[in-house]
Amino acid sequence: MITLFDFLALSGALFAIGLAGIFLNRKNVILLLMCVELLLLAANFNFIAFSRYLNDISGQVFVFFILTVAAAEASIGLAIVVVLFRNRSSINVDDIDSLKH
């Protein structure tokens, strides 16, 4: 049978992959946003697995709210990327260092 721990291990692996993506990728802002989406998906996996195995619908309600917040986050993040590209003609993470100097 599929146990809860199978789903938790899968979600842990997804979370680790998303985190590794943020560390690996120092160039492309859009790919960073995609890795954040992966992290949120891993969190949603945990909520839904616990909701099923504890037989409580509240977990799915929280997944609903997380999806809402993730959609708003993606739209605002992409708007910021567009403005950034318009002002700097680049979405390279290494180029965004104005506050460092």
Partner: peptide, 27 residues
């Protein structure tokens, strides 16, 4: 966005060990 795909991936090999180590630790 018209981006240069070649230069966007330059640091991948350099940062790969760090990323893999962090991912393994978290997992």
């Amino acid at each position: 966005l018209d981006t240069d795909t070649q230069s966007l991936r330059q640091g991948l090999v350099r940062y790969a060990p760090l990323g893999v180590v962090v991912a393994l630790i978290v997992f």
